[in-house]
Amino acid sequence: MDIAEGLLYTKEHEWVKIEGSCARIGITSYAQELLGDITFIELPKISSELEQFKPFSSVESVKAASDIYAPLSGKVVEINNLLESQPELLNKSCYFKGWIAVIEVKNEQEKSALMDAESYKNYTKELKH
């Protein structure tokens, strides 16, 4: 299982990378494997407000569809437009080229509800059993 160090994780398999006052969001390798070849992502709108653990986007593969939940609350300041034409980046490079959005973090304290790489690793191990 491919899990990137230094990121924070949700139970719904999103990752978040803190970049100063902002945070970059994506889905984990576990999520993309579960979905299979991703064919479409509905990106959030710039300036839309996300609320922690509420759905803000959705991805589709041929035989599945899944909501994506916000790991943290905040305002969307950047989106990865490349995913519109190349949704396969979510499979091929989920932690790098396949990032989904950048938000301005509203409440730092929300981070405490997220998992670090180690705990997420254990969490996904349990799910497999």
């Binding site: 064919t39 479409f40 589709e60 041929v62 035989k63 599945a64 569809a65």
Partner: peptide, 13 residues
């Protein structure tokens, strides 16, 4: 195609 919109995959959504 685009079956991910439909009830047999997305159920209540």
């Amino acid at each position: 195609t685009l079956q991910a919109r439909e009830q047999h995959i997305r159920r209540q959504n």
